[in-house]
C-alpha cells in the first residue's frame, strides 16, 4: 500500500466526519483532518531519497554534499498551514457564537430554531 493512498484514506476520514457528524466541533475537526492530509501529500511528493533539507551554501554548490529535497511544495505548504490556522480560528469563533445564541453545538437543533 503506497504512502499516497494512506493520505487519501486520511482525507476520506475527514470527509466522512463532515458528512455524518452532528456536532459542530467534530465538523471543524473533520475540516482540519482534510487540510492536514493535503499538506502531507504535497510533502510526500516533494521528498527525494537520501537527500538533505533545502539549505544550501558554497560547499553544496561545489557538489560534495547530497542533493536537496524539492523546496517549492514546502514553500506552498507553509502558506497553506498559516491560512489553515486563520480559517480554523474563524470557524471556531462562529461555532462559539452559535453556542451562545442557541445553547447547543448540534446542527440539527440549530436548524430547527431558525427564524
Amino acid at each position: 500500500m503506497s504512502l499516497y493512498f494512506l493520505c487519501a484514506v486520511l482525507f476520506a476520514i475527514g470527509v466522512y466526519c463532515i458528512l455524518t457528524k452532528r456536532n459542530l466541533i467534530k465538523i471543524i475537526i473533520g475540516v482540519g483532518i482534510m487540510e492536514y492530509s493535503l499538506n502531507l501529500l504535497f510533502i510526500l511528493v516533494a521528498y527525494r531519497m537520501n537527500s538533505r533539507s533545502p539549505i544550501i551554501d558554497e560547499e553544496w554548490l561545489s557538489g560534495a554534499l547530497p542533493p536537496i529535497t524539492d523546496p517549492l511544495p514546502q514553500a506552498l505548504v507553509i502558506t497553506s498551514i498559516v491560512i489553515g490556522l486563520a480559517t480554523k480560528a474563524l470557524l471556531i469563533c462562529l461555532a462559539m457564537r452559535l453556542y451562545e445564541k442557541y445553547g447547543t453545538f448540534d446542527i440539527t437543533e440549530i436548524r430547527r430554531l431558525k427564524g
Binding site: 499538506n39 510533502i43 537527500s51 538533505r52 533539507s53 529535497t69 505548504v77 507553509i78 498551514i81 498559516v82
Partner: peptide, 11 residues
Amino acid sequence: LLKAPDLAITQ
C-alpha cells in the same frame, strides 16, 4: 523526517 524543518516548526 521528510526533510522539511521549516514546516515542522510552523506546524
